[in-house]
């Protein structure tokens, strides 16, 4: 924690300023490894803020995926498990079933949740597992260098679709939100973005709702 910054904060409070926003303590001091401007950081922040505001830091377990956010456990000051590629929903299923009073969430990318882990995702949702899955979709495999993901849009260029995604070759992007919404076991599914302040506020409200739904 930077001493000068702390001192300046105290100064402002003395001058009659009120705190509107500051970094939540549910995030650790570790500097995130994400690329500058990446929405992962924002999404991490929102989840951490929701955990903070709900006062459940001592009763939450997160599951990180394989992909860019594999190291998410270093950034949240909560108990965390790192799952094998795509298996976070299965891992979280057991955490929740064996610890029904604990808040459980997975944090997964599109390669993890919508390609290699599609079966786990669909079955966890369809069993109505009482947990929250945060699906961060950037339309690409980021960690491995920008290859095509199941969510890559038609025409979109990637390391493995250098001339753009072709339907005749690669099929269509998988619409995970719509797919899950058709399952009777899914309680709440929504698509949000973190591209501007209004969207961020909406996304945070959605994350809050998803966590609140775990209350029994």
């Amino acid at each position: 924690m930077n001493q000068d910054i702390e001192a300046r904060k105290q100064e402002l409070l003395k001058e009659g300023y009120e705190e509107v926003y500051t970094r939540t303590k549910v995030l650790t001091d570790a500097v995130m490894h994400y690329c500058p401007g990446c929405g992962h950081g924002t999404t991490h922040r929102l989840i951490a803020e929701v955990i903070d505001e709900m006062g459940i830091q001592d009763n939450v377990v997160g599951v990180s995926p394989v992909g860019c956010s594999v190291l998410a456990y270093n950034y949240f000051d909560v108990d965390f498990q790192e799952a094998a590629h795509g298996r976070a929903p299965a891992v979280a299923t057991a955490i929740k079933r064996l610890n029904p009073d604990t808040f459980v969430f997975t944090y997964q990318g599109d390669g993890d949740l919508a390609a290699i882990g599609t079966a786990e995702t669909i079955h966890a949702a369809n069993r109505g597992e009482n947990m929250t899955m945060i699906f961060v979709n950037n339309g690409i495999y980021g960690m491995t260098g920008g290859q095509m993901a199941p969510t890559t849009l038609v025409g979109m260029r990637s390391a493995t679709t250098p001339y753009g995604r072709r339907v005749d070759l690669n099929g269509y992007p998988l619409r995970m939100t719509e797919l899950l919404s058709t399952l009777p076991g899914t309680y709440y599914v929504t698509r949000q973005s973190v591209q501007n302040p209004a969207a961020v506020r909406k996304a945070k409200a959605a994350i809050r709702k998803a966590f609140e739904n775990q209350r029994r």
């Binding site: 377990v61 599951v63 498990q81 799952a83 094998a84 298996r87 299965a90 891992v91 979280a92 299923t93 057991a94 955490i95 079933r97 064996l98 610890n99 604990t102 079966a119 786990e120 079955h123």
Partner: peptide, 25 residues
């Protein structure tokens, strides 16, 4: 807790998740 999983892949990862909470799974 007893649960029939969707595959052996899911079952072993459920073991991972549950056992990592310090329980006998």
């Amino acid at each position: 807790t007893v649960l029939q999983a969707e595959s052996e892949v899911a079952s072993i990862n459920m073991v991972y998740g549950g056992a990592a909470t310090g329980k006998k799974v």
